[in-house]
Computed example of a mutant assay.
Amino acid sequence: MTSTPKFLLVDDLEENLLALEALLKREGLELHCARSGEEALELILENEYALALLDVQMPGMDGFELAEFMRANTRSQHIPIIFLTAGRGDATRRFNGYEAGAVDFIQKPIEPTILRSKSSIFLDLFVQRQQIVVQRDELVALTAALQAADQQKNRFLGVLAHELRNPLAVLSSGVALLELPMGDLDTDAVRKSMRQNVRHMSRLIDDLLDINRIEHGKISLKKERVDLGEILPHALEIAQPAIDAGGHELAVSLPDEQITLDADPARVIQIVGNIVGNAARYTPNGGRIEVTVSRNAPHAILTVADNGVGIAPEQQSIIFEMFGQSDNVLGISGGGLGIGLALVKQLVELHSGEVRLVKSVLDEGSVFEVRLPLAS
């Protein structure tokens, strides 16, 4: 963030300071005045200056001594200094001035055009330096973001390979078994396993395609009036393989009253199925998943609670981002691609709804809440 450029004007005579202010005053520039070297040092401790204009001949600490103090201080050593002098000055005096840190001398009485011209150069340099600092900081932030994105991409590709390799291995083994002489082979069990893994792969690919469609604005909702209680079983059916695989207990609580939405039923099924399936995959075997539907006008509220692995506090802010899979679920069988909750968030928002993590505690579980507008 850039700050307003400031000039420091130092002269022991009030009339000289007023004259300098009148000559240098311009929009976007602050002028700070000091009547002594000591007063100037106090201002330097509190401000950053683009230029210091110092009177050479002052009682007490003169301009040369003030310049030496400024050069000895890391905060002020880079401030350009122009000395203002009433005397003609010999070569030795000028040498001492440059040695003290001066970039230039201006003779009194001051020529306004020369003062404005020289001070403008240092003002422009200061502004450019600030812009360079801002651009540098932006580049640092961009580099960090690109590095983080690259790490996410690499992790995603690794998870994708894992998620696709496992069902492919099952399909390959199933085909090999079916090619053997029948004998006592339970072909129904083999086919069932193959169908489950085909569905798993199809779901992964569908999620990837949906994310791509949403990001490119190519997905549209086919809204109609739907009863949430009627489509909920279809949504839970999507998550049933993950629930069965983990041997989880599923508890569903619905209100007595009908809850009607103006929504795309296929997408609502997808939202619920993804959240419940997510809970099933991230819960150790033999866990419990609770799905509760309630009404709080003007919203229908769906709550999904589990007693799974939970999410670390520092990772809870990224779980709805693309590939924002929590580190503590990596390695869990069927952990997914880390895009399920990102897809849920985008689908919910397309319905003008909201999804949030209500709470999550490591090794105790998580609670998610989806709010969707009720039909008017």
Score class of each variant (00 low, 15 high):
Thr4Arg: 12
Phe7Met: 09
Asp11Trp: 04
Leu13His: 08
Leu18Gly: 11
Lys25Phe: 05
Gly37Asp: 02
Gly37Cys: 11
Ala40Ser: 03
Leu41Phe: 08
Glu42Lys: 07
Asn47Asp: 07
Leu53Cys: 06
Leu54Glu: 00
Met58Arg: 03
Met58Ile: 02
Met61Ser: 05
Met61Phe: 08
Ala67Arg: 01
Ala67Thr: 01
Glu68Tyr: 13
Met70Phe: 06
Asn73Gly: 03
Ser76Asn: 09
Gln77Cys: 15
Pro80Ala: 02
Leu84Phe: 01
Thr85Phe: 00
Ala86His: 12
Arg88Gln: 15
Ala91Asp: 12
Thr92Trp: 06
Thr92Leu: 05
Tyr98Cys: 04
Glu99Tyr: 11
Val103Leu: 15
Val103Asn: 06
Ile110Gln: 05
Pro112Cys: 08
Thr113Val: 14
Ile114Glu: 14
Ile114Cys: 06
Ile114Ser: 07
Ser120Glu: 14
Leu123Phe: 09
Leu125His: 12
Ile132Trp: 09
Thr143Lys: 08
Leu160His: 14
Ala161Thr: 06
Val170Asn: 03
Val175Phe: 07
Leu180Asn: 12
Pro181Arg: 05
Asp186Lys: 15
Met194Val: 02
Ser202Gln: 08
Leu209Thr: 09
Gly217Lys: 04
Leu221Glu: 06
Lys222Tyr: 08
Glu224Pro: 06
Arg225Glu: 14
Gly229Ser: 12
Leu232Asn: 02
Ala239Tyr: 01
Pro241Gln: 14
Leu250Tyr: 06
Ala251Met: 14
Ala266Trp: 07
Arg267Gly: 01
Val268Trp: 04
Gly273Met: 10
Gly277Asn: 02
Arg281Val: 06
Ile289Lys: 05
Ser294Cys: 15
Ile301Gln: 10
Ala305Met: 13
Gly308Val: 02
Gly310His: 01
Pro313Tyr: 11
Glu321Lys: 05
Glu321Cys: 07
Ala342Pro: 00
Leu347Ser: 03
Val361Pro: 03
Phe368Leu: 09
Pro373Val: 08
